[in-house]
């Protein structure tokens, strides 16, 4: 009886000590996935997701507080990458990826105040004071930060027109079977 109680106690203590040791030895300060997820994000801190920046958004995604589809500039490609990193399967078919948005400058209204130039997270707008500004389509993520800051309303988001280079076959529509 005593032997059993003793041996079990010793065993418990020893294992407990080991566990405690392991917890200290292999402690993980931050979920490493947060860094991974953040690396996948565009990093433009545009705030379209509703979070103040890409880093908080990444934290929310890892903690399951935000859906994987939160980032419009990232598109389907990002959703899939996030799904692979976090081991979550997502159905992207419902995601509307068809109309990426781009900012455009209305040349008749722009006064060349360079406010948008300074706001753009990707330096996608070129121009100089008192000169009409132009958006470089290649660099624009469609975040819309410039639209809020423009004093004359010369900037607007427009759907990106499909071209021969970006046109893709649509998924075949099977007759209801």
């Amino acid at each position: 009886m005593l032997a059993a109680v003793l041996s079990l106690t010793v065993l418990g203590l020893a294992l407990g000590w080991l566990l405690g040791l392991a917890a200290r030895r292999f402690r993980v300060d931050v979920d490493p996935r947060v860094a991974q997820v953040e690396a996948l994000m565009p990093g433009s801190q545009c705030g379209q997701c509703g979070f103040p920046g890409c880093s908080p958004a990444a934290l929310a995604v890892v903690n399951g507080e935000a859906p994987l589809t939160l980032c419009p500039p990232g598109g389907k490609a990002l959703v899939e990458a996030l799904g692979n990193t976090l081991g979550i399967s997502v159905d992207t078919s419902a995601m509307n990826d068809g109309d990426p948005q781009l900012a455009r400058v209305d040349e008749t209204i722009c006064i060349g105040c360079i406010k948008c130039l300074r706001t753009c997270p990707t330096d996608a707008i070129v121009g100089a004071p008192k000169q009409i500004h132009v958006v470089m389509e290649r660099a624009c993520t469609g975040c819309g930060a410039c639209i809020e800051i423009c004093p004359t309303g010369a900037l607007a988001l427009m759907e990106e027109e499909p071209t021969l280079r970006t046109w893709r076959w649509a998924k075949p529509q099977l007759v209801a079977a």
Binding site: P42, S44, T122, D123, A124, R138, A139, T141
Partner: peptide
């Protein structure tokens, strides 16, 4: 495009 955006940022 995402990679490019990251570079720009």
């Amino acid at each position: 495009k995402n990679d490019y955006t990251r570079q720009l940022v």
